[in-house]
Amino acid sequence: MVLIHTPAGTRFCATHERVAHIGIAKRIAAIKGGCFGGQFDATFSYSGRPYFLPTDTIIGIDVAHELGIFAEDDLFGGVVPHGFVGTKAITHGLISEGARSPASWSAEFAMDVVSIVPRGYTAFCIEDAHAAIECLLREGPVRVKPVKATGGRGQSIIRRASEFDGIVEKLDHAQLSQFGLVLEEDIAAPITYSVGQIRLDGLVASYYGVQILARDNFGHTAYGGSDLSVVRGDFDDLVGVRDPSDEVRIAIDQAQRYDAAAKRHFPEIIASRRNYDIICGTSTTGQRCCGVLEQSWRIGGATPAEITALEAFAADSGLKSVEVSSVEAYGTCPPKPANAIIYFEGVDQQVGVITKYAHLRNA
């Protein structure tokens, strides 16, 4: 039985996301040959061992064990030992050795990945954030990134230190001290690639692809979907089955190195869904650059496309690769392909009119 689980303290999910989660859970249940059991109820006694679809990364190994999650076969998503590990906060180091950080902070991880991420810092207090901003502004604009936000929401670009004051007023200081805030060089003319892997019911699929940007109903830039090339097998099979461009090869290599570093420094992590966003563009110094922005060990925007690929592999044991897309269209949606799998189509109180679907482009 597949159950949706909402971890304590999870971010707010809009209606279109909650409806999409149900659709994803039902399709996962079909792949597993089981049924969808709705929202997990801690007071209910389930027959058999449930399979979980968490709506966010589960924080705490003990919390996962209490649910019956001990390995990647028990969930679609991930478990991390500490709150900051499940966010983009781990991508960057601190501004100084004396900077504030949680007791479990790993300076070693940040040092391990510094050559494959954009220039930036993570701060856990306002004073350290100011110091990081002043340092980064010497070479160009700075992007301020709340670590719990998704799809690029809530980010700001500042060109003067004084502009940070308005952002400070809106920060939740309790969340800042627990999860951190990312200050990062602003990459110009960016392309964001996604490299990931999903494991479900004996199936292993890895992919690379590009994120599509859209204008939401308020005129802001938002996540508009992903076009993915998916292969049956591990990360190494991506280059063997597909023939990516040189820049995509760099993205795949950086994602693998980031993934390996996470396993070394946080061996407690459980993740059946691993996704890494890699940005390529022009750095503040005018150089072409690529770097890992963040990891996602949870259900994400590309998941409808991931599930579509898994369904294709489950239906045809000889199939080696597929091309799939996940789409999030705001306002009036253009004509959908005939094989579109609709996850939401209608009006969401938070974001307005939106259509979410996935489709198989070709095999």
Rank of each mutant, 00 (worst) to 15 (best):
I133C: 08
E268S: 13
L319G: 05
D165T: 12
F266P: 00
L137E: 03
G300F: 02
F109L: 14
G166E: 12
Y46K: 13
G151P: 00
Q197A: 00
A25S: 07
P334E: 04
G68F: 08
S296G: 10
D112W: 10
I31H: 10
A262V: 09
G318R: 11
D234K: 10
N217E: 05
R11I: 12
L200W: 02
E127C: 11
V114Y: 10
V117W: 04
D246P: 07
D277Y: 08
H173L: 15
G86I: 04
I4N: 06
R257K: 14
H359Q: 07
G77N: 01
G151T: 01
V114S: 11
G291H: 09
S96C: 07
T57F: 00
K88D: 05
D186L: 03
T282Y: 06
E163I: 03
D243L: 11
A338W: 04
F179W: 11
D73N: 13
G318V: 08
F36C: 01
G219P: 01
V113F: 04
Q254K: 13
T221M: 10
A189Y: 04
F266D: 01
A107G: 15
A29T: 09
V85L: 03
T55Q: 09
G23F: 06
G166Q: 13
D316C: 10
Y357G: 00
I198M: 09
P267W: 08
I167R: 11
